[in-house]
Structure formats: structure tokens, C-alpha cells
Nucleic acid binder design. Structure first.
Lengths: 148, 148
DNA sequence: CTCTGTGCAAACACTTTGCAGCTAA
DNA sequence: TTAGCTGCAAAGTGTTTGCACAGAG
């Protein structure tokens, strides 16, 4: 059964998660479990607030900060990650030449990358069929020469 | 001379910009010119605040909002653009399978894209030589099926 | 029992809005 | 002249911090 398999998969992920917490010296609290579960049972790439809403349904007393802090913790121990580029101040670019971006996750610097082969990335049909794609780019994250 | 060429290029861009403003029914004010110039003479993908600092040097009385509003205006008329993903609340993902993201610029929804050929994007040597690249992804923006 | 995690509240940072006076066309 | 722009101030939204109590190990 599909549903069964999903449950197995979720249980598996939660086990892995628990192990990862223990390894990182983090206690396994009901809140953390609830937040983690909320995160792996959605595909909507939620914001802190969305997770808060979701967890609040079976956990009415949880506080917003706990959710926020917990998500940041998950990010640190590698149990979740921040969607590329999100959560930062708005930044502008006036260079319309085709190029790509590399962002340093420490100093937040954004470096232009000019790499020919990426200039003609094709939009997958599954997307092109439903959505109107206006921009496409190859995006890199990591530590820059000065921060690594 | 390189410097001469640069000046020519900048003058050219400012002319284009002026035309674009006129076409969009926007007045060409000293502030707008200063902000635009600040934007095209840097490669640092500045935030509003960075532009504000920069413009403030030769334009001490400009206000922060003017800079902010002007940059948003530039984005609307296509004289500049917001760096992909920036300027939004932080969002999380717990799916570590290799996949790409499409973001709807209207409803902000993020949709997963699973497209095999993108799974092994190579990091350009120019980057790999200097930086430590931890994540690489192909990123799309536009209007989703519901918003277009 | 101990020490980390949680909840609360206040502080912050960034962005947006409303309005009155100013200015480019 | 006049519609649109700028500067100021206040409000809004999302995030971070400090601390006391509670609960996991």
C-alpha cells in the first residue's frame, strides 16, 4: 500500500533524525519531533510562520520562537536547509548580461559567474507546460575565497 | 583607453535608462540618476542600504525611502532586477533528494522540479578554484499555473 | 538531579505607507 | 502649471535575544 510505505518512510526519517539529534547532543523533545514531522510531510517549503500554523494544530501551546529556533537548529545539524537565497534582505542587480550567481553563506557576498554552458539552460517540459518561466539561473552557495 | 570605454558604456546605459523612464512616464530626477549610476558602477549586488550609503556620498540629503522606492521602481520598469530569491522570508526544506526549485513571483509558492539532467551540474573551474561550493541548483522564477 | 530547551516579552532590522511640500517637464 | 517625486515619520512584518521555569536524559 502506498500509505503504508509512506508511513514507513516517515518513520525511517524520524529515526534518522533522532539519531542525528543525539549525535549533535540535542535532546529529543516533543516540539522538535512535531516540527520535524510537519516539515517532512509537506512539499510547500514552508516559512517559519507556516510551520508554526501547522504544528499549532496538534500542539496549541507551542510558541513561535520555539518553531523559529528549532528550524534554525535543524538547519545547523543538517536535518533541514534554508531554501536558497531566502531569508535575506532584498538585493539588486542592473547587469542584464546572462550570468549566474554564487553566494557566500558567511559574508553574504554575491559573486557573478560567467559560464557559457549555463547560458542556454532549457526549461524542463513539465514546468514549461504549466508555468510561465521568466527567469532561469544556475545558483551556487558556499564559502568564498576569503571566508573558507 | 579602458577608462574612456567604460565612460562611454556608462553614458550609453544612462541614455537607455533615461529613454526607458520617459517611455514609462517617469520623470528623470537627479536622485534617480544617482541611484541608477550607483547601481551600474558596482558588481556587489547591493541591498537598499548599500545603495543608500553609496548615493549618500554625493547626495547627502537623499532619504532611505527614496532609494528603496526608486529601486523597486527600477525593478518594475526593467531597469534593474531583484536578485533571485532575495528579499523574502526564510523558507525551509527537508527534502534532500536532488531537485530544483521554481518560484512563483506572484503567490510566492515554491514548486519542486525533478529534472535529471540538472542533477549533475558542474561547478565552473573559475569558481571551484577559489570558493568552496556547497550547494548548486538550477532556479526558475515566473508565474505558476494558477497565477499566470 | 542537572543542564538544555521552551515560552514569554521586549528589542531589532528591514520594509511599507500616508502625507505635505517640492520640482521636472 | 501640475502630476508625479521626495523626505519625513509612523506603522507593519519578520527575526533575534534574555531570562526564568519546566522537562528530557
Amino acid at each position: 500500500m502506498v500509505v503504508e510505505n509512506e508511513n514507513v518512510e516517515i518513520r525511517q526519517k524520524i529515526d534518522d533524525f533522532s539519531a542525528r539529534c543525539r549525535q549533535a547532543g540535542l535532546k529529543i523533545t516533543p516540539q522538535r519531533l512535531a516540527i520535524y514531522k510537519a516539515l517532512i510531510t509537506t512539499t510547500e517549503h514552508p516559512s517559519t510562520d507556516m510551520v508554526y500554523q501547522r504544528v499549532g494544530k496538534d500542539f496549541p501551546n507551542i510558541s513561535f520562537d520555539t518553531v523559529n529556533r528549532t528550524l534554525l537548529t535543524f538547519n545547523q545539524i543538517g536535518a533541514a536547509f534554508v531554501v536558497e537565497g531566502s531569508g535575506e534582505v532584498r538585493r539588486f542587480d542592473a547587469n542584464f548580461e546572462c550570468h549566474q550567481h554564487f553566494k557566500c553563506i558567511k559574508c553574504k557576498r554575491i559573486i557573478d559567474v560567467f559560464h557559457e554552458p549555463f547560458n542556454d539552460v532549457q526549461v524542463p517540459v513539465e514546468l514549461a507546460g504549466n508555468c510561465e518561466v521568466l527567469r532561469k539561473t544556475v545558483y551556487f552557495e558556499g564559502y568564498c575565497d576569503e571566508c573558507k
